[in-house]
Design a protein around this nucleic acid. Sequence first.
DNA 1: CTCATGCATAGATCATTGTCGATCTGAATA
DNA 2: TATTCAGATCGACAATGATCTATGCATGAG
Lengths: 121, 121
Amino acid sequence: MTAVTIQPRPGIHLLADECCTTLAREPLTTSQAAELAHILKALADPTRLRLISMVAAQEGGEACVCDLTDPLGLTQPTISHHLKVLVDAGIFARDKRGKWAYYALVPGALDALSAVLSTAA
Amino acid sequence: MTAVTIQPRPGIHLLADECCTTLAREPLTTSQAAELAHILKALADPTRLRLISMVAAQEGGEACVCDLTDPLGLTQPTISHHLKVLVDAGIFARDKRGKWAYYALVPGALDALSAVLSTAA
DNA sequence: CTCATGCATAGATCATTGTCGATCTGAATA
DNA sequence: TATTCAGATCGACAATGATCTATGCATGAG
């Protein structure tokens, strides 16, 4: 690890620091590749993809853990684990209100990733 | 496994079968999530991301294994393994000419993925 | 034909990760 | 305060995966 900057959330870091990097334009540096891989790893799981699509399709664009556990047929700790991975990657935001924790897409996060993958100029 | 269609390459399958599916629009089915996760898993590795960017940035958009081994500091079998993962995911195409095997991006593969991730209508 | 070269495959090893049951924390309610 | 409920964290376990060494399989050169 060399000369680390302040670094807010990991996902935001990608969006800020490498917003203009496209995968198919120039060779990625080691750290660029590591950051991108971190975000993609968070997406590269069937359960987490379904979580994202379910939350995004929800009224108001947010859902609590209890809404997500039953439809996926997994235990509550497992769902909580996946949600944490998505939050750590900067894809989901967590908002605790009362007894419930609501998760929602971070605006622009998926679109930023989409732009990185695009080969269009 | 139910009623399997002809199914060419896995990556192409995603592009054809689910080209109009966007992650953030409606809940993904189990099999849609599994297919998308398969492609994303192939991308979610620093070495493979660098391979993609290196091949794409190469003159002619293709490179042989020998061009890719040294810059990444990994052994030849490891590079071959990563390239195979990318081919199986429909991201890379392999073209063997003489003693060399040339790898290149499948046209449209990354852009299709980019479209799936985009939240734009 | 024989040998060298470029690459793929096989098998082994070690780290990562998806999942669970059990437990802890914090908020609302009685 | 005691209880209940939503959710997070912990520890364990099995499965996956990234990497290596060793080997196999073609292709081209001599």
